[in-house]
Amino acid sequence: MDLRKNILTALLLAIGFIMHQVVPGALGSMKFDFMLSFMFVALIINKDFKSTLLTALLGGIITAMTTTFPGGQIANIIDKIVTSLVVYGLIMIYSKAKFNVITIGIISFIGTMVSGTVFLAVALFMVGLPAPFNLLFATIVIPTSITNIFITVVVHNVVIKVVKITRIKFIDIV
């Protein structure tokens, strides 16, 4: 694991933490999880299994600390780990292709859908849901998945532009 990549991952998770903290709880105290976009960019840049596990664990702990969902702490940690592993698999599948707006959008959409589904399933099993699963899925998970496409693409493009401008040669420009 490269120190520069770890620092970039830490910065992305810090920004994701702020985004997760300022977004208010919506239906059933669920939040739009914008931390995922920053996690996905960190995973795309690192493309390393150890970094994936570290990003998943840190992202899960951070979102667990800022959740407004009653009993959502464990669900957040589990969902970030499962989601990061799925996204890592998608990144490995797409690694032969160039990461463009379409592939990043697909990875983000699928990753957010997986995250929301796992979170709701774990929360349902552990503490119950404040509203029906289908309602929470339709009003929180689907809109978040669509929104995260745009956020992930923008954040990824900003990171790539910063790397090009600063001429730091620690990631492959994708």
Rank of each mutant, 00 (worst) to 15 (best):
D2L: 07
R4A: 12
R4I: 09
T9E: 02
L12V: 13
I15C: 04
F17R: 00
F17N: 05
H20N: 08
H20Y: 14
Q21P: 00
K31R: 11
A42W: 10
L43G: 02
F49N: 05
F49T: 11
T52S: 09
A56W: 00
A56I: 03
L58P: 00
T63G: 03
A64M: 10
T67I: 13
T68C: 02
I78A: 15
I81T: 08
G89Q: 13
G89M: 11
G89L: 11
L90K: 03
K96M: 08
V101G: 02
I102A: 07
I107R: 00
T112S: 14
V114A: 01
S115K: 01
T117R: 04
V118Y: 08
F119R: 04
A121D: 07
L124Q: 13
M126R: 04
V127L: 11
G128P: 08
P132N: 13
N134F: 13
F137M: 10
I140A: 03
I140D: 06
P143N: 04
S145I: 02
N148M: 10
N148S: 10
F150E: 04
F150P: 00
V154T: 15
N157M: 12
N157D: 11
V162I: 15
I168F: 04
F170K: 02
I171A: 01
D172E: 14
